[in-house]
Simulated assay, not measured.
Amino acid sequence: MRVEIWTDIACPWCYVGKARFEKALAAFPARDDVEVVHRSFELDPHRAKDDVQPVLTMLARKYGMTEAQARAGEDNLGAQAAAEGLAYRTRGRDHGSTFDMHRLLHLAKEHGRQDELVQRLYEANFAEERSVFNDDERLVEIAVVAGLDESAVRAVLADPDAYADQVRADEREAAALGANGVPFFVIDRKYGVSGAQPAEVFAQALARAWDERSPLTLVDAGDSAAEACGPDGCAVPQR
Results as ranks from 00 to 15, higher is better:
residue 81 A to E: 05
residue 101 M to V: 05
residue 75 D to T: 13
residue 43 L to V: 07
residue 150 E to H: 06
residue 52 V to S: 11
residue 118 V to C: 07
residue 81 A to M: 06
residue 45 P to I: 09
residue 128 E to W: 03
residue 70 A to T: 04
residue 53 Q to F: 05
residue 92 G to T: 05
residue 59 L to A: 09
residue 150 E to D: 09
residue 100 D to G: 02
residue 81 A to S: 06
residue 125 N to T: 15
residue 152 A to V: 00
residue 89 R to M: 02
residue 115 D to G: 13
residue 137 E to K: 12
residue 95 H to C: 14
residue 56 L to I: 13
residue 85 G to T: 08
residue 117 L to Q: 02
residue 115 D to C: 00
residue 71 R to F: 11
residue 45 P to W: 05
residue 97 S to E: 07
residue 73 G to C: 00
residue 60 A to Y: 04
residue 68 A to Y: 09
residue 91 R to F: 13
residue 54 P to C: 06
residue 80 Q to L: 15
residue 114 Q to E: 14
residue 123 E to Q: 15
residue 132 V to M: 01
residue 94 D to E: 12
residue 146 A to T: 01
residue 119 Q to K: 13
residue 69 Q to K: 11
residue 49 K to F: 09
residue 71 R to M: 14
residue 108 A to D: 13
residue 115 D to M: 12
residue 94 D to P: 03
residue 83 A to D: 14
residue 105 L to K: 05
residue 103 R to W: 01
residue 53 Q to V: 12
residue 103 R to M: 12
residue 51 D to S: 15
residue 71 R to V: 14
residue 107 L to S: 04
residue 60 A to L: 06
residue 121 L to I: 03
residue 85 G to W: 06
residue 41 F to M: 10
residue 139 L to R: 05
residue 109 K to Y: 14
residue 90 T to A: 12
residue 153 V to P: 04
residue 94 D to A: 13
residue 122 Y to A: 10
residue 150 E to F: 06
residue 88 Y to E: 02
residue 36 V to F: 03
residue 75 D to C: 05
residue 142 I to R: 03
residue 48 A to F: 07
residue 131 S to Y: 00
residue 58 M to H: 14
residue 110 E to A: 14
residue 147 G to Y: 08
residue 83 A to K: 13
residue 144 V to W: 11
residue 65 M to A: 07
residue 103 R to F: 08
residue 96 G to N: 04
residue 66 T to P: 06
residue 117 L to K: 08
residue 78 G to L: 06
residue 142 I to W: 02
residue 63 Y to V: 08
residue 108 A to W: 05
residue 133 F to W: 05
residue 77 L to R: 06
residue 35 E to A: 15
residue 112 G to R: 03
residue 141 E to G: 11
residue 106 H to S: 07
residue 42 E to Y: 01
residue 153 V to N: 11
residue 75 D to I: 08
residue 97 S to F: 05
residue 64 G to F: 06
residue 40 S to P: 12
residue 64 G to Y: 01
residue 121 L to V: 04
residue 45 P to T: 08
residue 126 F to P: 02
residue 114 Q to G: 04
residue 144 V to P: 12
residue 126 F to A: 02
residue 98 T to N: 01
residue 126 F to M: 05
residue 149 D to H: 01
residue 105 L to S: 14
residue 120 R to H: 07
residue 108 A to S: 10
residue 66 T to C: 03
